[in-house]
C-alpha cells in the first residue's frame, strides 16, 4: 500500500530535517531552504502491514494558501510542523489547521512541535498550554526524539481511516 503525505508549516521549522532524519537517519546543522517541493520515499512496517510513504516536503510558507492547491491533491495525511522556540510559527494554529483540512480534504493531520532539544521541559509545557490545539508529537530532528513516532502515528491513522 502506498500513500502520499505532506509536510507543511512555516519556513525554518525543520520539516526537511524531520524528513532527513526519518528517511535517511541523518541531521545537518546547515539550513537549506526548500525550493518548491522535495519528494522522498520510505517504507513503514505497521504491525505486519507494509506502508510506502511518498513524502512531499513542501517549501515553508506562512500562509497555508500560498502552497499550490494541487500539491494537496490525493494526499492521505499531513504533518503540520511548528517550531517550539518561535511563537510566530504556532499562533493562529487552529485557523491554519482548518484551512489545511479544507484544502487537503483529509482529517489525518498530525501536529508536531519540533526543536525540543532547544527548550527546557517547562518551556515546552508552557508552549503546549498556550497553543490551544492538541499537539500530537514533540520532536527533535537533531537528537532524533519522537521523529519515527510521529510518522508512525500518521501511518496508523491513515491505515485506520
Amino acid at each position: 500500500m502506498q500513500k502520499k503525505i505532506l509536510l507543511v508549516g512555516d519556513f525554518g521549522v525543520g520539516k526537511s530535517s524531520l524528513v532527513e532524519r526519518f528517511v535517511y537517519s541523518r541531521f545537518s546543522e546547515e539550513y537549506k531552504s526548500t525550493i518548491g517541493v522535495v519528494i522522498s520515499k520510505k517504507e513503514l512496517n505497521l504491525e505486519g502491514l507494509v506502508l510506502k510513504f511518498l513524502i512531499w516536503d513542501v517549501a515553508g510558507e506562512r500562509e497555508i494558501s500560498e502552497v499550490p492547491a494541487s500539491y494537496y491533491l490525493g494526499c492521505s495525511g499531513l504533518l503540520f510542523v511548528f517550531d517550539l522556540t518561535r511563537p510566530e510559527t504556532w499562533v493562529g494554529m487552529s485557523q491554519r489547521l482548518e484551512t489545511i483540512r479544507q484544502m487537503s480534504k483529509s482529517d489525518n493531520i498530525i501536529v508536531v512541535g519540533n526543536k525540543s532539544d532547544l527548550c527546557e521541559p517547562s518551556q515546552i509545557e508552557q508552549v503546549l498550554d498556550k497553543i490551544g490545539v492538541r499537539v500530537d508529537a514533540v520532536t527533535s530532528a537533531r537528537s532524533d526524539d519522537n521523529v519515527d513516532r510521529a510518522f508512525h502515528e500518521l501511518g496508523r491513522r491513515i491505515v485506520n481511516d
Binding site: 502506498q2 519528494i39 520515499k41 511518498l54 512531499w56 499550490p68 494541487s70
Partner: peptide
C-alpha cells in the same frame, strides 16, 4: 520511478 512520478506530478501541477 516513484520519486520521478512524484516530481513530474509536482512540475505538472505547478
Amino acid at each position: 520511478p516513484d520519486l520521478v512520478a512524484g516530481m513530474l506530478t509536482a512540475i505538472k501541477a505547478f
